[in-house]
Structure formats: C-alpha cells, structure tokens
Amino acid sequence: MKYSIVKNDYPESLDLANQLTEQLTSDQAWVVDDENPDYVFVIGGDGTFLKAVKQFNHLLAQIKFYPIKKGGIGFYTNRNLFDPKELKTNLNLNECQINKYPLLEVKIDEKTFFVINELKVLNDVVPQQFSIFVNDEKLENFKGTGVVFATPSGSTGYLKSINGAIIYPTSQELFEMQEVAPVSTVLFHTINAPIIFSHEETIRLTQINSLKVNDALTVVGDARIIATTFATIEVKISAIKLKIITTNKINRAALLKDIFVGN
C-alpha cells in the first residue's frame, strides 16, 4: 500500500508524523509514495486537509484520506483521534469506517477542478454580469458581486457567513448556490435566496459582458484561486466521492454544536 503524509507546521504535528512514519516503515506492506499514493494521512486542521485535497486533486478517485486532528477547528478532523498502535486496525478495510463526501466538479472553460468545500465567483471592484442556467434552462441574469456554490460539508463555512443554509446530511448528493450582494432595484432584481440542487442539475454561468484586465474577478475553489477570468463555468456534483477514513462515527449534530453553539 502506497502512502503520503501532509502536515501543518506545528512541532507536535512533526512529532506525530515521525511516529506515524516509524509505524508504517515497520510494516513492509507500506511504501511511501508522494506522487501516486493510495492513502494520504493529513495531520492538522481543515486548512491542512484542504491543502492535501489540492495537492492530490487529480487522484481523488483512488485516494483514501486519513485526517488526524492537530490544528484548529476541523469539520473533517475533529472526531479523528490517533493511536499508532491502532493504525493497522483502523486501516483494515473490513473494519474501518469510510465516509464518502460529495465533490463539486467544476469546469472553467476547458479546465476541470474538484472542490470539497466551496466555489466562489467574486468581483469586489465592479459588479459582474452573467446568465445562470439550470440544465440549459435560463434561471436569471445576475448582476452583483458574485455567487457561491457549496457541498453539504462546505455549507457550514463561507456560505453560512453570507446567510446560506446549512445542508445537514453530508452524505447526500446535494449542493447549494447563494448570490453575493446582487444589485436590487426596481429595474433589476434576482432570486437572491439560497437554492439547493441535486445530482440531476448542472449549473452554468455564462458571461454577459467581457471583463477588463484590471477587474478583480477571482474564482476560488477551496481557498485557492483557480481562475481570474472565464467565459463559461459549469458546476455539478461529481461522480467521484472523497473518501475519508474515520476512527469514530461522525455525529453531524455534535460537530455543529461544538463549533457554533458550545455548551
């Protein structure tokens, strides 16, 4: 079995990575491979997890991620405790629990990306204008700062902060779209409400006006800029699922309470 380790820069994460490496190298069945791994161990919080998803974006169909909590708040890592002695048990496919998370498949003109949290199409300098289509049927012409798309697991992030809905069942093939600061006058208005779509819908954004070079358009997928211009963007639920190994059963209500409500 081939593996790679992605960690944050905390000293305790380095210590844990050394323990993990020692455990894995003692078993001849494990071989380090940072180019084409079967398993990726992620030591850190959600930021480190997103870094790992970015690094292996082209291999998501084959990889199983094993996040280990060593960082800040983490929806993907908060319930994953690590004990080197239990590693072999936790990676036994007949015994371990593997959660599968929906991914957004994003096509920007001719390039394709996979997003686990959210896709943001924003311009804070000038209002951008594009048409929004649902399965080739026009929904509206949009004018404003932009739109955000999120998966169920990503709906508790940026989308929540702009009054989007939290999608509770993380295993469902659902995704959400929310407008950001749309122009609203008696002459121009949009739906301006969260819309939840299923795997049967593909959303297409098509530019109405050409953007100038100095415009501040950014297309951001999982906290990284993936484009600064586009003619067309298509967003849908991918057939590929992100596979995450967990040592404890994920309790969505407990995660939401721990992070947003408290005791």
Rank of each mutant, 00 (worst) to 15 (best):
V42A: 09
F175H: 09
Q55N: 06
N78Y: 08
N209D: 13
L159W: 00
T151C: 05
D33T: 06
P152L: 08
D9K: 13
E176H: 08
R252N: 14
V186Y: 09
K120L: 14
H58L: 01
V180F: 10
T190R: 02
N90K: 02
L81D: 13
G154D: 10
S210F: 02
E200K: 06
L24N: 13
Q128W: 06
L59S: 14
Q207Y: 01
T185A: 07
F130N: 02
T232R: 10
K64P: 03
G71K: 04
K241M: 06
A253D: 14
I240L: 00
M1D: 13
Q62V: 13
N8G: 11
I68R: 05
N135V: 00
K236E: 13
E176N: 11
K243E: 15
Q129A: 04
L24Q: 11
E137T: 13
L205D: 01
V106F: 06
I250S: 08
V183A: 03
K249S: 14
Y3L: 06
E201D: 12
I116V: 15
N92Y: 07
L50M: 12
K51R: 10
L91M: 12
P152R: 05
P169V: 03
K7I: 02
V261C: 00
Y168R: 11
E137N: 06
E137D: 08
F65S: 04
A227S: 14
K70Q: 14
L217H: 01
V186L: 11
D258S: 05
N57M: 11
Q55A: 13
N18H: 10
I226Q: 05
L16D: 03
Q128H: 14
Q19M: 08
S210K: 12
I167W: 08
R79G: 09
H58R: 05
G72W: 00
I162P: 05
F49P: 04
E234G: 01
D109L: 04
I237M: 02
K236R: 15
F260D: 06
Q178S: 09
C96W: 07
N36K: 13
L119I: 12
T247G: 11
K100T: 09
A61L: 00
A253L: 03
P169W: 02
V213C: 01
L217P: 05
E173G: 03
P169H: 06
N135E: 02
E12N: 10
